[in-house]
Design a protein around this nucleic acid. Sequence first.
DNA 1: AGAGTCTACTGAACCGGTTCAGTGGCGTGA
DNA 2: TCACGCCACTGAACCGGTTCAGTAGACTCT
Lengths: 354, 354
Amino acid sequence: MAVTISDVAHAAGVSKGAVSYALNGQPGVSDATRGRILQVAKELGWKPSLRAKGLSSAKAYALGLVVARDPKLLGTDPFFPAFIAGIETTLAEHDYTLVLSVATAPGAEERAYRKLADGGRVDGVILTDVRHNDSRIGLLRELKLPAVTLNRPDSDSPFPAVSMDDTDGITAAVEHLLALGHVRIGHVGGAQEYIHGRSRRQAWESAMAAAGMAADLFAEADFTAPGGVAATADLLRRPDRPTAIVYANDLMATSGQSFAQSQGLSVPGDLSITGYDNAEFTQYLNPPLTTIATDPMRWGRVAAQALLDQLNGTHSGQDTDLQAPSLLVRASTGPAPSTTTKHATKQAKEHTNP
Amino acid sequence: MAVTISDVAHAAGVSKGAVSYALNGQPGVSDATRGRILQVAKELGWKPSLRAKGLSSAKAYALGLVVARDPKLLGTDPFFPAFIAGIETTLAEHDYTLVLSVATAPGAEERAYRKLADGGRVDGVILTDVRHNDSRIGLLRELKLPAVTLNRPDSDSPFPAVSMDDTDGITAAVEHLLALGHVRIGHVGGAQEYIHGRSRRQAWESAMAAAGMAADLFAEADFTAPGGVAATADLLRRPDRPTAIVYANDLMATSGQSFAQSQGLSVPGDLSITGYDNAEFTQYLNPPLTTIATDPMRWGRVAAQALLDQLNGTHSGQDTDLQAPSLLVRASTGPAPSTTTKHATKQAKEHTNP
DNA sequence: AGAGTCTACTGAACCGGTTCAGTGGCGTGA
DNA sequence: TCACGCCACTGAACCGGTTCAGTAGACTCT
């Protein structure tokens, strides 16, 4: 930080302005002078101060991401790390950085957005985990903070969205189970407060309806492992318990599968299970989990680019639709049990393989 | 960003300097004037610009964290999210933010540190995943970037360390297995390039030596799931295969356990397994994993505080030692198999419970 | 009463860039 | 040859804070 633009200007025998023009590829200096200035700058090891640059150009050269999740849950969710890695691949090409906030306590989320906006720490934010009637949209509007949302909010939003449809994946999972002969296919949903919790549920409902089946085996959970256990227990207690359950994420599927097995059910013998996300550990479960392989890295890359475009004013204003993730069949799904094994629950401790 | 310090000064009928003094609680203004200034500032909704502040005070008001891991691995590692959440709890109290970089490609890591240092984007960094003879230490020195390391590097480092001993946990795991009658206790180590890979291996060796046992059943892996499979396969192929394996992290333990089961081994009947980290999903495995419960959130909190102290000049210069994580016994460990089941491998397909 | 001290405040310089109006020199056309 | 336009560059203002030297006025002390 020792060498400044003035040092370079002096060493090259020109004014500060000339150096600025030379560095930024703007007209106003001859090629010869430009070359000399760049040469001198290089020799002196000049790195323009981001702070000074930011002050005069009123930019922060940073994007913000506020993650409002319980760190416990965060730790097991494969989404964010990969998503963030995707953001970085885009930012690495433009000299922007990512400012990350983790807001766990209630109220901390709004404070985090205000903190990012107030001092002008970031030029825009990426909004994840969009909720039903998400209050953050109004907040960001108030703060005049440009944003991009992951999926289109169900309330009015002025921000471009980068969407990755989750309908196709869930539909494919249901159809896969139907093809295996399942009829009673349940759904353990994520918190319905989230639009991805809702859309996955709706996809399950629609797919069931399309097959002429009732979509009554629903239990709402919260995307967490204990929630998955509770919801699974709920479904398995029902008089006509499901022979297959479509979970809204891998973590619930994992804990649900584990719970079902602890109750003496064989997976997939008695119960087929599908997850969502394709967390790496799911292929090491017993049995490995059939799941839906999303591409959070790509999502991050595209979302960051969309936000940068918006900041540059080069964004089309259109929403971006990413390719829908597809079903990855592994061993946690199998043929529906024949009716004779329907009451297997009680004897299942002695039961090994169907 | 509309209202500036000049607006406030004008509205309060004082100079810019007075406003600055009033806001920062510095002497130079009477209590009455200070009150009036603060009042006016509040009414106008003035938020001092971080950029301007940073320029004149030569601070970035941000800390940096560079994560150099494969995003796939990152996605399953519970460490970082919780660690970052811990950093945030500290930063939330001081108006600092966290700048996160994910460096996946080779060479990207050094570039990331340079990027953070060059423009003066951060005031200091937290160094995680310290390696043997870590080149980053020299790099940070060259960049004159203050830092804190997680655990004390094995090369000369001028930076304070915040350490969480992993010897105790591994020792406890080995002793737990010894108490269960195991003799051939193997270790699947993380990449020995990392000092935590080394220290865990050494802890295992020492604990074995202390019990008078040979520590020859070692296989090096890389902290990834496929690596865990390969190392496990290696150990199980050995003539005197282990009856218990201590893994250097949960991900390898998970995949190792899954692999062993796929080979027909019962866990813990034929093979006991311990992990490290206490990732949330490990309690939903079959069987749930015996592991070592670390506290990455606390680690993050303390490390961030240590770095801030260092920036303020209030750091003692002493390393900080956090409480060592302890063993969490679950069902993946059990009594050593009797000698009759020693060759269980071949017949294991027919083998259910011991 | 005069000197000295202290408090409360002002004005200006400064941080390190960007940007704009202004200027000098050169080439061109009539 | 002179007027004109254009290019290349300079100097200064500016972004919004911090900080320091300087000063006016009140108070104390002898």
